[in-house]
Amino acid sequence: MTEAARQKFYDKCGRYLFIASACLMTILIFSIIIFIGRQGLLTFGEVSPLEFFFSAAWDPSAKHFGALSFIMGSLLSTLVAVAIGTPLGLSGAIFLAKVAPDWLKRIMRPACDLYVAIPSVVYGYMGLILLVPILREYLHLPTGFGVMAASLVLAIMIMPTILTISTDALNAVPKALGEASLALGATWWQTIWHVVLPAARPGIMTAIVLAMARAVGETMAVQMLIGNTPQLATSLFMPTATLTSDIVVEMGNTPFGSAWGNALFLMAFVLLILSLGMILLIRKFSQRSVA
């Protein structure tokens, strides 16, 4: 083989290796869907979908597998976390994009990275030793565990996601738009509220949905703060459980392949579908912004 031919051969090999690595991503996500789905859907051999999704009676020893309280727990804690985290993250984003002087910007960016880097057990531990006792003392609650404790910590954990993505969206709004509004006599705040924020809306929506995906899948911090009691939450201050927290608590006790174990896999599958659904939702936002 001549030198040129050999280089050409290497070139081809390299190309195929790169394609193979990239295709591995698709293979992985499909295997995850198939394996988790197959194990989870086995549940329906013994439990009716109606019971799983619409009953809150969870008692594995009596063969009751109603996951409603976990599904509601996950949705409730996510919604409360987003309701608290979005105003804070969005204010932080407007501050970072439009108000903060340069030296402060140079501090806030790495600060956000640090927020993301703090392990979720550390968030959970802090919630456990600081937040739960405070809730118990000042609100006179029996335990302090529950959706509120979990959601407050979740809100802090998802805030940097909202902040960084919204900041990018705000910075991407063409300067001319804001200048036109100011030139027409609008004040600085009117310009931000009525011109810049609406223009950045697709990016901000993406940020919020990504934050929701993070909140619904967050496991450790929630498990340490939610109280781990399989009962339907009728208040934000009573112990309950979520899909993720219950998987962590119970998976270790279940024989692999039992109805109980499969029901936990089905809960994981519900989580998987929720998070994939959110990715498709984000695709919709970004397509609209391009058009």
Binding site: M25, I32, I36, V216, T219, A268, S275
Partner: peptide
């Protein structure tokens, strides 16, 4: 796929 993989909750990756 890359985006989806990044959003799969880590507990689900653990079960996989």
């Amino acid at each position: 796929s890359v985006e989806s993989l990044a959003t799969v909750p880590s507990i689900v990756l653990g079960l996989f």
